[in-house]
């Protein structure tokens, strides 16, 4: 029996159910599902209604592997740098399980944390037109719209910045996909059917996040 939700409840459920999914089954994403995901992106807000987003759908396996190599290489470099300077160890200091810690270090420093995109059935490359005022924010709104639609469709996705964050990698991705100079490669959204359900990641308590009238004055009071 299907559950019934109000619009607000359904919206919050999509928001709360979203996960960053990095393991996919070989099952393809249908054209109809892709249409809905891209329409969700198209409806995002943008400064001056500039709609600076453009999308490249990458399904070709050879191309996906090349993108995965760029993404994995970039993540591997950055996380290895974090590891050799001991910053990663500081970040994981509270993780007591040594086996889990080692596995996390391996996943990060090897670049596998991002290279997985090679195995996603679809990668949506998000590009942003530079000659507008608010492109990073506009494209981020489009991306979040896509992620929520992907969740609502029962699919999984991961927002991957690894192939674009360092200008050296972004240049390689742009050359690989023929993205023109006047556009920035912003991110890649890897989409597919997830292999398993994932638990939610912890969130900071809301009372630590919200202030009233000025910075520092808590909006949410302590419970009596």
């Amino acid at each position: 029996m299907s559950e019934t939700f109000t619009l607000a409840e359904a919206t919050m459920k999509a928001i709360q159910d979203r996960r960053s999914i990095r393991e996919f089954t070989p099952e393809p994403v249908s054209d109809h599902e892709l249409d809905l995901i891209l329409e969700a992106a198209r409806q995002a807000p943008s400064g001056e209604n500039a709609q600076p987003w453009r999308f490249i759908i990458v399904k070709d396996e050879a191309l996906r592997k090349k993108m995965g190599a760029v993404a994995g290489g970039g993540s591997g470099r950055r996380f290895t740098a974090e590891f050799v300077t001991k910053k990663m160890q500081e970040r994981f200091a509270n993780l007591q399980d040594e086996a889990k810690k080692k596995a996390a270090f391996e996943k990060l420093t090897s670049g596998q944390v991002s290279a997985f995109m090679a195995d996603a059935p679809v990668n949506i490359v998000v590009c942003g037109k530079k000659d507008v005022w608010d492109m990073p924010y506009d494209t981020s709104a489009a991306i979040e719209n896509m992620l929520l639609m992907i969740t609502a469709l029962g699919l999984g996705a991961c927002w991957v910045i690894a192939p674009c964050i360092d200008i050296r990698d972004e240049e390689r991705i742009k050359a690989l996909l023929g993205i023109p100079e006047e556009f920035k490669a912003v991110s890649v959204i890897s989409v597919g059917h997830q292999t398993r359900l994932h638990r939610p990641r912890p969130r900071l308590p809301i009372k630590e996040l919200v202030f009233t009238e000025a910075w520092g004055a808590p909006y949410y009071m302590e419970q009596a």
Partner: peptide, 12 residues
């Protein structure tokens, strides 16, 4: 400065 060198990149 500390720089880390990696192996050759895969060809695209």
């Amino acid at each position: 400065l500390l720089l880390v060198l990696f192996d050759q990149r895969p060809s695209l």
